[in-house]
């Protein structure tokens, strides 16, 4: 199968993720969309790795996974404590950091 199709898929996934981050209010959903964007990037990396015939992209994909795992730990902790404080998981309710 033509590897370019994987790139199309990655672009599609990234767009869905980005649209979710911009549009959805629920912090969990936003969070999942961010994960979706990261995985879209991973897919693109692997596809490029295949196209160029070297392993660089695959190695970076592993790094991304590690970073994403760490991000999940921190991000979920923030969301949980935010929910405890405000009884809401909406990102628009957490808008105190402004001038």
């Amino acid at each position: 199968m033509n590897p370019v199709n994987y790139l199309y898929l990655a672009a599609l996934l990234f767009t869905i993720g980005a649209a979710g981050v911009l549009i959805r209010r629920n912090a969990i959903v936003v969070f999942m969309c961010v994960e979706l964007m990261l995985n879209a990037c991973n897919l693109a990396f692997v596809a490029f790795s295949r196209m160029h015939g070297n392993l660089d992209g695959q190695i970076i994909a592993f790094f991304t996974m590690v970073v994403a795992a760490a991000e999940v730990v921190v991000g979920l902790a923030i969301i949980v404590s935010l929910f405890r404080a405000r009884h809401s998981a909406s990102v628009d309710d957490a808008s105190l950091m402004k001038l």
Binding site: V21, S95, K98, L99
Partner: peptide, 17 residues
């Protein structure tokens, strides 16, 4: 410029995009 700092994470995301 201050008005851009509205505290909404989603509008920051828009400017990043």
């Amino acid at each position: 410029l201050r008005k851009l700092q509205n505290g909404y994470a989603r509008s920051y995301a828009v400017s990043m995009f």
